[in-house]
Structure formats: C-alpha cells, structure tokens
C-alpha cells in the first residue's frame, strides 16, 4: 500500500508460510526449488506477486515508498479481492475498516474552486509507473472522474463504471451534511459502498485535500456546470 494515512499494517493479509526467500529464477529451468502445486490458489497468487521478481519493485512510487509497497495489500484491498459483491459479514468488516481509517481534513470538509475541480475531474494524469513514469514535477495528477462518471451534462465523453453525477448538487444542495458526506465518499468510499470499485482518493493520498475540495465544488457548487 501507498502512504496510507492510518497504516493498517495489522490487517495486511499475507500467506507468510509460502513466502520463503531466495527464489532466483522461481522454480527455474535448473531445479524445481518451489513446488507451486503445494500451495493453495491464494498462497500461490501472493507468492507470484511478491516473490517471483515479476515487477519492477525497486521503482519509486510518486506517493512515496517503493513500487513493492503498492502491491502489498491492506485490509480493505484484501477483503475486497472478490468476484462479485461482498457477503454481509465482509461488507460489515469493510465498512468498519473504512470508518476507522477515514480522516476529516483539518478544519473540516469544504468546497474549493469548481473551475479547478473541472480540470482535475478530466485529468487522468498521475501515479503511473513501470514505463513512461508520470512526472508530478512537470504536471499535476488528476482525479480522472470522467473515466467512470457522467458529471457536466454537456460533456459527451464519460464512463459508466460509476453512477451519473449530473446535477448532483442541484438535487442535494450543499449544506454541511452533504459536504461532509461527499468528502467521506471521495476520500474513503467503502464507508458507504463496501468493496466499491472507486479508489480511496483521500485515504490513499492520491489527491490532496485541496484538490478534493476543488472536485467537491465541481460537484456541489450551484455555479458549476455539473448543476446546470
């Protein structure tokens, strides 16, 4: 995991029994030093990700830490590695983890500048590594909201992985309860939607609190094109 605000290291699920070190050329052509059929599928998947030199783990991640940290799972990622929706118990555990790890911004959630939010909602730049690594020094990362959501009804290119947010503020207003709720959803959405596809933009330090405030303004400001 990346620079999680609350860590959650105690929740990391690893198949530690199979993570034996010293795998040069993983069951390579000279000798079968690891019997992959002795592991169950979960153990083998963890082994393949973390112990077979399949990734450029030495690279730096833009959020801090190494690429390896990105591929270690925290509690919510592990619990939500599911086909389909979580069962009731899992959903309850995920909601509890999300509530526990949610952080309000200093001074409480607020609305920023919707024009800046519009730019951030359209930008898919940032955090890509492996090859052609994104350079945050030359260009600010964005939230890429339009990849999954409709927002401004006049914008034709939008994804459908998430629900339409067109007119979101127009129907809900923007009193403090709405502002607080929207911040919780953008920052750590599993509090309300356990195992949602949506990234934890705040918790994962993917967006700054200032950027989240701008995107919230784009959603909730009565002047924003989203609400026209």
């Amino acid at each position: 995991m990346l620079g999680n605000k609350t860590g959650g290291a105690g929740l990391v699920v690893l198949a530690s029994t199979v993570l034996i070190a010293g795998c040069d050329g993983w069951m390579g052509e000279t000798s079968g030093e690891v019997d992959i059929t002795a592991m169950n599928a979960d153990e083998l998947a963890e082994y393949l990700v973390l112990e077979t030199d399949s990734y450029r783990f030495e690279q730096e991640a833009q959020e801090g830490g190494s690429a390896r940290e990105r591929m270690k799972q925290d509690g919510i990622q592990a619990a939500c590695s599911l086909e389909g929706d979580p069962d009731a118990d899992t959903a309850g555990e995920v909601i509890a983890m999300a509530r526990e790890s949610y952080e309000e911004p200093p001074g409480g959630p607020r609305l920023g500048n919707w024009r800046r939010g519009a730019e951030l909602a359209r930008s898919g730049y940032g955090y890509r590594i492996g090859h052609r690594n994104d350079d945050h020094g030359s260009r600010e990362p964005g939230g890429n909201c339009y990849a999954c959501h409709q927002m401004d009804p006049a914008e034709e290119l939008y994804g459908t992985l998430g629900p339409s947010l067109a007119g979101y503020g127009a129907t809900r207003g923007n009193d403090s309860s709405v502002v607080n709720y929207v911040h919780q959803v953008v920052s750590n959405p599993h509090q309300y939607f356990p195992c949602t596809k949506m990234p934890r933009f705040g918790h994962n330090n993917f967006l700054t609190e200032e950027q989240i405030a701008h995107i919230m303004a784009y959603l909730l400001d009565p002047e924003s094109p989203v609400n026209q």
Binding site: M1, L2, A41, D42, L44, A45, L48, V49, A61, Q62, E63, R70, M71, K72, Q73, I76, Q77, A78, C80, S81, L82, E83, G84, Y127, Y146, A147, C148, L157, Y158, G159, T160, L161, K197, P199, R200, N204, F206
Partner: peptide
C-alpha cells in the same frame, strides 16, 4: 483467477474493476 480479482495499487483496482460487468465504458 486470484490475481484477476486481487486489488492493489494506488487506486485499489483489480482487473474486474473494469472487466467485471457487461457493457460498461471507460470514457468512450
């Protein structure tokens, strides 16, 4: 199969985030 559903990275995605439903779009 486990890797396909294994969530991780800076956006918490797995392969099924995009390929788990019929007819969904990323942008266009």
């Amino acid at each position: 199969e486990k890797l396909f559903y294994r969530r991780g990275g800076a956006m918490d995605f797995n392969c099924a985030s995009c390929h788990g439903d019929v007819g969904k779009q990323i942008r266009a």
